[in-house]
Each structure stands twice: as C-alpha cells, then as structure tokens.
Design a protein around this nucleic acid. Structure first.
Lengths: 161, 161
DNA sequence: TCTATTGCGGATATTTAGCATCCGAATTAT
DNA sequence: ATAATTCGGATGCTAAATATCCGCAATAGA
C-alpha cells in the first residue's frame, strides 16, 4: 500500500498557495519549478485539486491557481481526497460469499468483522487528517522557520510573478 | 492508494485458523479453496505470514499452516505488516530540499509539518488495527452468526482434513 | 485583432502490482 | 525405502495504476 507522490506534491503546493497574499494566481509550471517536479504531472494534480474545489483556476496570462477558500478550511484530507479519490484503501471483496461454504447474500447485509475493523481504522486515519488544516501547517512552520528564510522564499516568488 | 486484496485474504485465512482446534494444520490449497481464491497467490501470502512469524508452517503430509500464537495475540496490524510490509503509505521525498529555494540538509533534521501530520494519521490507523485481534473478531462473529451456520462450516472442513 | 500565456482533457508510454506456473526441498505415512 | 504431500523460491505473463506528452480552448494584455 502506497500513497502516490502526487499527494505530497499537492500538499506542498497548497501550502505555498496558502502562504501567498490573497488574489495572486500561480501557474502549475511555477509550482512545479519551485520544488523541481515534473511540470506535466504537477499540472495533472492541480487539475484534480481544481475539480475537487480545493483550488480555483484561471486561464490565460496572469492566471493560474489559488486557494478556493481560507487556509483554515482546507485540510490534508481534502487534498488526499482530491488527488487519490475518496475510495477507501481497504475494499472488501466479499469472499465470504464465495467458495463451497459461501454465505448467502441475505446473511451479508452488514459488513463482516474484518471489513468493519478496517473501515474503523481508516476512519481514524481520515479524522486525523481532517484535523490538520493548511493554516495550522503554516502556523507550525512559522514557529520553526527563521523569518530570514521566509523572506528569502517570498522574494524568489516575487521575481517570478 | 489501495490495499492489496492479499490482506483481506490473509485476514480471513487467519480467522479460519483461529477458529480451528489447536494443533490442526491447514494447507494453503485448502485455505484458497474455502473462499474460492487463486491457490498459487494464496500460497504466496501464507508464506509471507510465515516469514513474519504470524503463522507456522509444516511440510509434508498432514502439514500446513497454523497460528504461531494465541488468537488474542494476533492483531490485524500484524497481518497487514506481514503481507504489505511495514513501510508507511506516505513516504516523504523531501521535495523541500529541491528546486531554486531548496532547504539545506541541516534545516531538515526534523520532518516537515506535512510529513509529520501524515505520520501521525498513520499512527492512528495502525493503533486502530492493533486494537483488533483475531480473538475479538471471532467473539464478534459468534455473537452474530447462527450456531447452525458455524456447525456447517466446521463440518465441511472436517471432510477435508 | 493578434499574440503570449495558461488550464483542460484525451492519448500514450512506463512502471508496478496481481496472478499463474514450475520445480526443488522437506516431511510424513505406509 | 518409497511415495504422497506440502512448503518455498524463482520465473514469466497480464492487467492496472502511474507518469508523461500533446493539441485545443480560453483569457488577458498589447
């Protein structure tokens, strides 16, 4: 089981968007360049974020992506859901209904104990991700990152906008 | 992100082993037949469980697999770890150290906020799985499954052992 | 209006995971 | 001993997920 790298990329991209002044659009190409990522694939993931309503997009010169809502209202789960899709990692294939001792469909109105346990575990996982917003990430970062470093990053971005 | 079907198969197989009287070995072929699963691939997963010490194996006639310890001491996480490996689903590739504003390695002694949040979420997930043992699964099952159904399953198994 | 820029979606390549097969080694029952 | 089982590992094939590319549509500014 492995989460696609796109989730990490999208999360960092969204954190960058959240750190920017309001109303500024950033192209997918620039977001990719910032972390030395493949531009084409980065663009795909930004499209996924746009479809999911996490960011808004604007075409044409001076366009690009920006957050669709305040940073405090975008969670890591929103980003995972946008990039990886909403489906759970564990998908019960109902093998109890197969084989020589197959259970009848009527006996399977409820998920089996195993599926229930996995679903509960994933719910805990999602809950943990929903508790972390871009705002809380930036707040943590501000505490650990030197102001000089932060200024350096913003300065580079300004030269490109 | 998707968990392999093998985890579901292994979990059901272990639950079956846990429901059996002590000292009985079951071949991989029979475990596969019980749920109409591909025998070769089932065998592969049973080997993984044996390598991880979840089950013990015995070759030769009358051999097969059995639980390596009491059902109360085998958790769903043990099975996931055996089949999928212990690596986390989220793997930070340290993209903050790449690109035109790359952070220096000295600044990266600690994981970034994003990686830390994902690691915390997976810890919650693992914790939830570690709280569920094969014994608790069987106990839940006994509460919902009719005694007649249980007898039916054991009867079929006896004809094959 | 024309051009440069940018997002969008389809089509294509690459990599990974799932599945099957084979044969050898170990063990037990006869 | 011998034969019947059964696990273990190596190898190859297929399907699916992942990553990449390319042309088109839309937008803003000159």
């Amino acid at each position: 089981m492995r989460m696609s790298d796109g989730v990490e990329w999208a999360a960092h991209a969204c954190a960058l968007l959240a750190a920017l002044p309001e109303g500024v659009g950033v192209s997918a190409a620039l977001l990719a360049e910032f972390n030395d990522l493949p531009p084409a694939y980065m663009a795909k993931h930004m499209q996924a974020l746009a479809r999911a309503g996490v960011v808004t997009s604007a075409r044409g010169a001076g366009g690009g992506y920006r957050l669709a809502r305040p940073a405090s209202e975008v969670t890591l789960w929103d980003i995972v859901e946008a990039v990886e899709g909403p489906e759970p990692a564990f998908r019960c294939t109902e093998i109890r209904q197969k084989g020589p001792c197959a259970a009848k469909p009527a006996e399977c109105r409820h998920p089996c104990q195993i599926a229930a346990a996995f679903h509960a575990a994933e719910k805990a996982w999602r809950g943990s991700l929903k508790a972390v917003s871009l705002a809380s990430i930036l707040a943590d970062l501000a505490r650990k990152q030197s102001p000089a470093r932060r200024a350096e990053l913003l300065a580079w971005l300004e030269t490109k906008l």
